[in-house]
Amino acid sequence: MADCEAVLELNRAVVEVTSPMDAERFRELYQFSSIRLSVVLEEKVVGFVLAMEEGCGYDNGNYAWFEERLRKFLYIDRVVVSGECRGHGAGRSLYAHLFAEAERLGLLSVCAEMDREPPNEASLRFHQEMGFVPIGTRVLESGKTVSMQLCSLDRDREEDSRTVVV
């Protein structure tokens, strides 16, 4: 993913449902990410995803929440598709590649969080369609409530991918 400025521009357009990211933060996230994908249309980056494997050392509250509860997972830190490309398959294409790569790495699940309050209806709907299910919630320092969600890569092993927390 060479076009840092295009990724930053995409992120700026949806910063209210992601979080701020400058070039330094992008480089940091890029280094932690084991899967880095982008969608290019007519030589323009129109979508991207950055995802980290368990045990990568990423210092992030949402990542830590999953790390306390799951094993052999891939955490989607950031996924953005440009407004003009939403609903045309770019996100599905990103996730198809992401799931295939996660399976190749021998991972059991993919996890992510979406804004629940205030709701990011498009993201919640998209992730539900992609097979994600809610497994908890977190209230962030900002006051947002996020839905913590998981998609099992092998439905038969879904129970094995979670650690029971009492």
Score class of each variant (00 low, 15 high):
His127Glu: 04
Ser109Lys: 01
Ser93Glu: 11
Ser93Val: 10
Asp59Leu: 09
Gly61Pro: 09
Tyr63Trp: 08
Arg116Ser: 06
Val110His: 04
Leu105Trp: 04
Phe126Tyr: 12
Ile76Lys: 01
Asn60Arg: 00
Ala102Met: 11
Lys72Thr: 04
Glu103Tyr: 05
Glu117Cys: 07
Gly57Cys: 06
Tyr75Phe: 15
Leu124Tyr: 01
Tyr58Arg: 03
Phe73Asn: 05
Glu101Cys: 05
Glu117His: 07
Phe126Asp: 05
Glu121Ala: 13
Asn62Met: 03
Phe99Glu: 14
Glu67Lys: 12
His127Asp: 08
Gly91Arg: 04
Ala102Pro: 00
Leu98Ile: 09
Glu113Ser: 15
Asp77Asn: 08
Pro118Ile: 06
His127Val: 12
Phe99Ser: 14
Ala112Asp: 00
Arg92Trp: 02
Asp59Asn: 11
Asp115Val: 05
Gly61Tyr: 03
Glu67Ser: 10
Met130Tyr: 07
Cys85Gln: 15
Ala96Trp: 00
Glu68Asp: 15
Lys72Gln: 14
Arg104Lys: 14
His97Gly: 04
Asp115Ser: 12
Asn60Gly: 11
Ala64Ile: 13
Gly91Glu: 12
Leu108His: 01
Met130Asp: 03
Pro119His: 00
Glu103Lys: 15
Tyr75Arg: 11
Arg104Cys: 12
Leu74Ile: 12
Ala112Leu: 15
Glu117Phe: 02
Arg86Met: 14
Pro119Glu: 08
Tyr95Gly: 05
Arg116Tyr: 03
Gln128Leu: 11
Tyr58His: 10
Val110Arg: 00
Cys85Pro: 06
Cys56Glu: 07
